[in-house]
Design a protein around this nucleic acid. Structure first.
Lengths: 205, 205, 205, 205
DNA sequence: CATGAATGAGACTTCATTCAT
DNA sequence: CATGAATGAAGTCTCATTCAT
């Protein structure tokens, strides 16, 4: 019997930590780190406080593990950014679309940004790791594409700050969606299109 | 009449709430709302816990009063945005420079943004007021200038989202400075210049 | 000018302590000793906390002074109990009516009983004084009348406890009115009449 | 199976709330509601503050639960009042003796009365429930017996207030014992006897 | 592994009391 | 006298963490 839905006890157990991390994510999003209660996280999973402590020795380490957990998919996305194809402008467009699809549109990525802004002061290596793993690679990749475009005479040369400016509307949209939690309706496609136009226009015009 | 340092009782009293609000700002910035202690705020002023409660009945109301307090200067800035002069492009440039000078470069304004992002969920009218008082007027003013430029054939017509995109680099810079607390060095002038170029180029090119 | 209503400043000042005692009575009745706030007492008088401390050095002494103050009229009542006239039965009736009129029907006397019951444990000499000044004299006076009636063959001899029993309905009515704060309507005259009948019937029947 | 002293975890747990309620009773009796400290209640049980809050969410709810707890035996007493036997006079005598044995002589019942008088204003439904559950049924039962005696020509007809008066000495004795905490020695049996004589004499004489 | 009773440090808040003006 | 700003001890309640079962 191939066992369709039911999980074996072993599978169930292997799942526990992940369930806890997901629950932790929701609670920390809702209340922030300091105001979240381990008990509420446990309750979300349907276990008791003690169980959380079986898997994570402190609230702090649970928070850090949760951050690792939710940023894992993001890391994967960045790795796919090597496969961009075409001319520099096309690569830039593809890359920006990739970021909209997997960062701006992904709730976990957005909330990761909130944690970085809100809890960064109390978790300094959250900042450092976030910069190392996400900000720097993204800016770096954009810079590469820009350099490539310039080398091929496809783009006009731009100063170093241009890479940052290039990313700005995307970051701004993340923030706006964090703040208004989607009560504010922005036409996401129109916004992205305008963003691209602006950048490409400036590079090629 | 000597009056070197000593304040009269009356002066002291008028000062107290302001001192407390300033101290509250620092503590709330450092730890966030939930993790800040009223006692530490008091200590910063050089008084005891009880004194804080003479002026603010709860920690929550102290937080809200502090938000009002630090956003007061900002409100004043926006009111000066009527005096822009020249052609639309010049007005846009002046307005963006105004925003860089008084928002991006002002620590209180930047940290206000952090409070909005970090504590907005627990203080919903913080969000609402912030939108009403700052976001909406700023976007509105930009839109006005754009419309004016279009009407005078100075600018190319752009879709509604363009105003948001226009503001993005500025918002992004606020966020970056919040995250890296000035450890990250961005050439602020170069960045602003690139921002302006990008926007004007797209509008007039 | 004979000065009709307006008080001179001097009179006003002489009044202060009395006003405070009255206000204290109301607050202590409402909340009990522990839960009453000196500030609320002051507010009732229209002065500030500090003023209360000008006249009464501690909350405890204020409470005790208030007890003295409200029991003063009662003391006067007992002194008039010497003027009873007629035969023993008539004296007993007059005395019981006196007690109904000046104790059962007097809010201050009733509330004094509440203080004795509720705060007696924390103010032991409240109990002692109350016994000395009120309970013992009243029981004593009743006993005197009973003895007189027996001596004159007007009453049947009764055991010592009878004096206590004689007073019981009156005390019970005080308690009931304290508990129900006059929401419970007892026909006070009918009750007193039944009380008298019961006692006299037993003594003379 | 040894089981000398040690309680199992389960037994211990079932006991805890009861221990806390008993300790709460003692503290609230000693100090009144407002002046009692949760920590002292805990200490009486031999646990810490936190433990009390495991079982009772607030001091107020602890107080209310304690009231329920100590009045439970009383409720049971009233239910046994149906089994009175004999003629009306005998029933009345038995009922009054029942009340002396289980109310006047029961410390918890007496102190319940103190709570009603002292804290009733802050716990209005304490009053209401007390009236509903105790006062009204007791008065009602007395009235029934009186009516029965009248119907059988055993008693003389008496006005409605007579039931209240009938109960008075008992209530008075509760109050006196509350006030003097047994320092005042009343001959309880003689008092009760006099009470009965008085009432029966009036009904049958 | 999972439980949940128990702990105790620590937070917010209250309020009697003091004292300079 | 009267004020009211300031104090600080103390109380209620919370919650991360532990541990025996």
């Amino acid at each position: 019997m191939p066992n369709g839905k039911r999980l074996t006890r072993a599978e169930q157990k292997a799942l526990r930590p992940l369930q806890i991390l997901e629950a932790a994510f929701e609670e920390f999003v809702k209340n922030g780190y300091a105001a979240s209660r381990v008990e509420d996280i446990a309750e979300r999973v349907g276990v008791t406080k003690g169980t959380v402590y079986v898997y994570f020795p402190t609230k702090e380490q649970l928070f850090e593990a949760m951050i690792q957990h939710i940023s894992a998919p993001l890391r994967k996305v960045l790795r796919t950014s090597d496969t961009l194809k075409g001319r520099a402008a096309e690569k830039l467009q593809q890359f920006i679309e990739l970021l909209y699809d997997h960062i701006v549109d992904d709730r976990k990525s957005r909330e990761l940004m909130r944690f970085v802004i809100a809890e960064g002061a109390r978790f300094p290596d959250l900042i450092d790791r976030h910069h190392e793993e996400f900000i720097a690679p993204i800016i770096g990749r954009i810079q590469e594409i820009l350099d490539e475009g310039v080398a091929l005479n496809e783009f006009r040369r731009k100063p170093a700050e241009f890479a940052d400016v290039t990313m700005s509307p995307m970051l701004a949209m993340v923030i706006v969606r964090l703040i208004f939690d989607d009560r504010q309706d922005i036409d996401r496609n129109a916004f992205r299109h305008e963003h691209l136009q602006l950048v490409l226009n400036s590079l090629t015009g």
